[in-house]
Every structure is written in C-alpha cells, then in structure tokens.
C-alpha cells in the first residue's frame, strides 16, 4: 500500500470540516464550519482551489445537488472525503500527536 499523501495545514482543516459536516458539506457550510471551529475566515478563492486540488489528488469526491432559488437556480457542489483522504488526515494527525508527546505547551491542556 502506498504511503498516505502529505497534507498542508489548510488541506487538513478542510478535510476535517468536510468529515464533521458529513452529507451537508458544500462551499458555504465548509467555510462556516472552518470559521466556527478555528476563528479563521478562509477566502473563497483559497477554499475552492484547495477543494479542486484535493479532488485531483483523489482525497475528496464531489457531486452536484439540486438547484435552489436562494442560489439563483444554481446547484450545490457537495464534497465527501475518500478513504485515501481519511487515511491522509489520520496520518497527519498521528504525526502531530507524536510530535506533541512529552511537550507542555502553554494554552494547550494535556490528557
């Protein structure tokens, strides 16, 4: 099995947001979830280019939903994390945990 692809910080954040949203992950909800959990308001450009790149890498898949009048009759593009994406984010988090082990950081409580 090939090793999980390396992820950038923002890619990890986006993948985690999609995983949290489950079946309701599209542009607006992903941005809101990131803003709610991280106090960062990602620019639409950064988010969409990251989503496109992750889809090209096979980390997420997308499908188009129904068009709604609220969106000017435009369809939503829903995202889902693939097994490869899940493995990549798990691997990245394991690395973080390993690096954090034994460290006492101010502002971070340890279990």
């Amino acid at each position: 099995m090939s090793p999980a692809p390396l992820l950038g910080e923002f890619e990890q954040i986006v993948l985690l947001a999609i995983l949290r949203l489950d079946d309701d992950a599209y542009g607006v909800t992903i941005r809101d979830e990131i803003a709610g959990c991280t106090d960062r308001d990602p620019s639409p450009g950064a988010l969409y280019t990251t989503l496109d790149r992750m889809e090209d890498k096979g980390l997420v898949t997308s499908r188009y939903g129904q068009a709604t009048p609220q969106r000017g009759g435009r369809a939503k593009r829903y995202f889902r994390v693939t097994a490869k994406g899940e493995a990549a984010v798990a691997s990245a988090q394991r690395s973080y945990q390993q690096l954090l082990k034994g460290l006492k950081l101010r502002g971070l409580s340890h279990a």
Partner: peptide, 17 residues
C-alpha cells in the same frame, strides 16, 4: 478559469451569502 459546473456552484455559494 474552471469548468462551467464548478463556476456555477461557486457563484451559487457566493449568492447564498
């Protein structure tokens, strides 16, 4: 700059806000 379906979805997202 991207496919027409993706452009449509992006504009839809922006319109929601």
């Amino acid at each position: 700059l991207t496919t027409s379906e993706r452009a449509e979805a992006v504009i839809g997202d922006l319109l929601e806000k």
